[in-house]
Design a protein around this nucleic acid. Structure first.
Length: 565
RNA sequence: CGGGGUGUGGCUCAGCCCGGUUAGAGCGCUUGGUUCGGGACCAAGAGGCCGGAGGUUCGAAUCCUCUCACCCCGACCA
């Protein structure tokens, strides 16, 4: 493509609305333009990249036996009522005003509807069905360019198996395919254990790219390779000590001590001799959760035990239920009213401080065995930076990550509710066992740029580069330069190399170099007067910044060698 | 949905507090000329009812009310 003829709206200034590098560069390099919050038009340059990403995904999906579908985005709302997801999605789903239709935020229902009509026997499975299409979600707050949009492209695939072993196999095939996809896309990534959330199912993993622009927190350990979303991450931390002597409970006045830090300082005790009480409402049932010291309660872990509807109690409820405000609440004497559970670190501990259920008073010498009946101990902690990895092989780092893929073992959630049944060898009917696997296409592009850029622009890795090389004719007034550049522009495609050719006249050399760095093709081929007089052509590697000159007659060969590696 | 911020030529912004010529700058764009290896220079141009509605005032980009849009933090996130 000749730059003089193509549509390449590059911009020098940093767009005011863009905060993260990938967003800024996707605008500046002319990959896309914003139409409305969370809605983007992809321009030819950007769509070129998107097609490369989709092609890689297709190849790897096809390699594990996937079959590509093209499915409707407009869905009858009744379909979503069958699985009760109109309610589950709530305001996230776009509703069509003049028809009982919705815009699909994902495609489990459509796929299951097809399976229900056509998959009747265990003989017809396994199946892997996928699509790469636009999804619609009414995000409350679109942000970070393409990272959280209201309309975006997603590859999602669905596996259908007749056995749980089959599901495991389909799931593993996807995990392997995903590793290949992200690796080919030039991303370094973590595979983390994840909370399966409201999707349900028995297992789930996320593919995460480390980035400050990320919305998820990850606990990772370089030494052992452990990586998990902090929603479920664990670490090795010692339990609170049990003293041999258990002193009797004693009430003490602790004026104006609200936080654990204040109580510990006032009583001259370490914070990890304090038991913090947190009150939640599980429907009408109050729940008291005990945590050690300043340990942060992990609400995902709490929800896993009690369900998603559990919520923190309101201040009025606290005083009504315990007789004290937050900060002076403790478990002693509340067993008849509350479900009382505790974090593992408190198991069997004694000599602890807790609230006395009387404002400005605490109890000393709480013994978890003697003074309170704990229904169960769970891991409720949020792990912290520097703690030991659960495998004991190193320290955890907490990093931010962008989710670029998520794989789920769905099980029979959708086949049950939609009655997608098959007959097994014995003629018995069972629901199809399903998996669901998603990849965000635009997110791959944004992450690629987050990981491969500098102050001058994008540094495309070969697999995603919209063109293999960027050919620059430095001076269009020089007939020799133009002739040589034109010749390369003709020859290189014959070697299977795609060329972006800056043949603009009336643009200075510096301007062309800046644009080339911004646009970021892996190799720049610079044809200029001085070098050409010495029968030389300059090659610049955008990633390393290395430049070298090669004799004209070797140019094509060198370029081919670079591109094909 | 809570909190904060911003809307002024295509882009980045100044002007607004403290109302008062014809609303500015840089970049980009058009024309002519000079340049031609790191976002050139000279000259001449085009381009704006200052997000929208209402109000206060002799007079509003500027003050007041409402509204819309976009960005950021939080909540939310299959």
């Amino acid at each position: 493509m000749r730059l003089s003829q193509g549509f390449f709206p590059t911009v020098k200034e940093v767009p005011a609305d863009a905060v993260i590098p990938s967003h800024q560069l996707m605008i500046r390099a002319g990959l896309m333009r914003q139409l409305a919050a969370g809605i983007f038009s992809f321009l030819p340059f950007g769509y070129n990249v998107m097609k490369k990403v989709m092609q890689i995904i297709r190849e790897e999906m096809d390699a594990i036996g996937g079959q590509e579908f093209h499915l409707p985005a407009l869905n009858p709302i009744e379909l979503w009522e069958e699985t009760d997801r109109v309610k589950a999605f709530g305001d996230i789903m776009f509703h069509v005003k003049n028809r009982p239709m919705v815009l699909a935020p994902t495609h489990e229902e459509v796929i299951t509807a097809i399976a229900k009509n056509h998959i009747k026997s265990y003989n017809q499975m396994p199946q892997i069905w996928y699509q790469i299409q636009t999804k619609f979600r009414n995000e409350p707050r679109p942000k970070s360019g393409v990272l959280r949009g209201r309309q975006f492209t997603m590859k999602d695939s669905y596996s259908m198996d007749s056995s749980w072993e089959g599901l495991d196999k389909s799931y593993d095939l996807h995990a392997e395919a995903y590793k290949k996809i992200y690796t080919r896309c030039g991303l370094s990534f973590y595979i983390v254990g994840a909370s399966s959330g409201a999707m349900g199912g028995s297992g789930s993993q996320e593919f995460m790219v480390e980035s400050n622009a990320g919305e998820d927190n990850l606990a990772v350990c370089e030494e052992s390779g452990y990586a998990a979303n902090v929603e479920i991450a664990t670490s090795l931390v010692p339990s609170a000590e049990r003293y041999s002597l258990s002193e009797p409970l004693k009430e003490v006045h602790t004026p104006n001590c609200k936080s654990i830090d204040e109580v510990a300082a006032f009583l001259k005790l370490p914070t990890n001799r304090c038991a913090k009480s947190l009150i939640f409402m599980n429907g009408e049932q109050p729940v008291l959760v005990l945590m050690l010291g300043n340990n942060q309660l992990n609400e995902s872990k709490l929800q896993k035990v009690f369900g998603a509807d559990i919520r923190p109690a309101h201040p009025e409820e606290l005083i009504e239920l315990t007789g004290a405000d937050a900060g002076s609440i403790g478990p002693v004497g509340l067993n008849n009213k509350f479900h009382i559970v505790a974090d593992n670190r408190l198991k069997d501990a004694n000599g602890l401080v807790c609230g006395a259920n009387k404002n400005d008073f605490h109890l000393l010498n709480l013994d978890m065995q003697r003074d309170v009946k704990i229904e169960a101990f769970y891991d409720f902690r949020t792990v912290e930076e520097g703690e030991t990895s659960p495998d004991g092989k190193g320290k955890l780092r907490i990093v931010k990550g962008i989710e670029v893929g998520h794989i789920f073992k769905l099980g029979t959630k959708y086949s049950d509710s939609m009655k997608a049944m098959f007959l097994d060898e014995k003629g018995e009917e069972h629901p199809i066992i399903m998996g669901s696997y998603g990849i965000g296409v635009e997110r791959i592009i944004a992450c690629h740029i987050e990981q491969h850029h500098d102050e001058n622009g994008i540094k495309w890795q070969k697999a995603l580069a919209p063109y293999d090389v960027h050919l620059i004719s430095v001076n269009m007034n020089s007939p020799e330069v133009v002739a040589k550049a034109d010749e390369l522009y003709k020859l290189l495609p014959q070697q299977g190399i795609s060329v972006l050719y800056d043949d603009r006249s009336g643009v200075t050399a510096g301007f062309k170099f800046k644009d080339a760095d911004l646009l970021g093709m892996p190799l720049q081929i610079i044809v200029g007067e001085k070098n050409l007089k010495n029968n030389l052509i300059e090659l610049k590697d955008r990633n390393s910044g290395d430049r070298k000159t090669v004799p004209v007659e070797n140019a094509v060969e060198e370029i081919v060698a670079f591109v094909k590696n």
